[in-house]
């Protein structure tokens, strides 16, 4: 019994970092219907620069982390402004291809600058300290990730539901022309979206880095985050978070009791299953257009 609960808890812990990546992808999807495959690598760049600031220049954490987040925000602004906005007659598919290109460029840049060998990132919390709740063990880093994911989800959810800017983001996605007619500068909205999304992704990256740090570290969380977002219906923030927990838990159960080799494939098996049964995702509340 204890073992099972432990597996479940670890699943949720793993799910939390997927959840952050899922949130980041949902934010961009919500305003532009673009799936940003460069999400992970944008975070990767921010994380490696933080590593550089910490290791080479010996800045303290309280300088390095906030500046990492600020950098991530600017990176998001910059990529939207300099790359995506330049697309002539953009369509969603073209945009997605652009993000794949960005992904490769960023990954290449990081590998070239920092090398492919694994590194260790200093972090205020050790990933090996653990908190025990009865006979269940959770590392303090996992607990932190869990709290951060839920907090960010809540903040973003409230932001999109109640703030004027948040509603303007949704308006932009639903009808760009009408949004412009309201005086909303839709280009700026998209830029802000990319900034926020990059910020959330960077948070995920910083929380993943203490356990694993090399140029491929974000690929798996990004794909799982994407899977989680699809599971949650792609537009629902809570949906993507719970989707991430489901994937984390199922993956861990499968790894623990069935086969460790196919652990990663399970996420995608779940997606196929969900898409067959409820194609709009588990949590989507999508209005079906009347003709």
């Amino acid at each position: 019994m204890g073992e099972l609960v432990q597996t479940l808890v670890s699943g949720i812990a793993v799910g939390s970092s997927y959840a952050l990546m899922g949130l980041a992808m949902v934010i961009i999807y919500k305003t532009s219907e673009v799936i940003n495959f460069a999400q992970g690598e944008m975070a990767l760049l921010s994380v490696f620069l933080t590593y550089m600031v910490l290791e080479y220049y010996h800045f303290p954490f309280y300088v390095a982390f906030p500046s990492a987040l600020a950098f991530a925000l600017l990176l998001g602004f910059f990529l939207e402004f300099a790359v995506l906005r330049r697309a002539k007659e953009p369509n969603v598919l073209g945009m997605i291809i652009i993000t794949i290109g960005l992904e490769m460029i960023l990954m290449g840049f990081v590998s070239w600058k920092f090398g492919a060998e694994p590194k260790t990132m200093r972090f205020p919390l050790s990933p090996y300290d653990s908190l025990s709740l009865g006979e269940i063990f959770v590392s303090s880093l996992e607990a932190l990730t869990f709290v951060v994911a839920l907090t960010l989800m809540t903040v973003l959810f409230l932001f999109l539901r109640y703030s004027k800017l948040g509603i303007a983001m949704k308006a932009t996605q639903q009808n760009k022309m009408a949004a412009r007619l309201m005086g909303i500068r839709t280009n700026r909205i998209l830029m802000i979206t990319w900034g926020i999304s990059s910020l959330v992704g960077c948070t995920a990256g910083l929380l993943i880095a203490p356990t694993i740090m090399q140029p491929y570290m974000m690929w798996d969380p990004m794909l799982k985050g994407f899977a989680a977002a699809v599971l949650g219906g792609m537009t629902s923030l809570p949906g993507s978070v719970f989707g991430a927990y489901i994937i984390g838990v199922v993956e861990n159960l499968f790894g623990g009791y069935v086969s460790i080799e196919f652990k990663s494939a399970v996420a995608f098996f779940i997606i196929v299953l969900v898409l067959c049964i409820k194609p709009s995702g588990l949590f989507a509340r999508h209005y079906v257009k009347k003709v």
Partner: peptide, 19 residues
């Protein structure tokens, strides 16, 4: 019409007052 279909009536009007 071109209303924002997945925003509420109130939110639509609020967007009208965006500026």
């Amino acid at each position: 019409r071109e209303v924002f279909e997945e925003l509420t009536v109130k939110e639509n009007l609020l967007m009208g007052a965006y500026l």
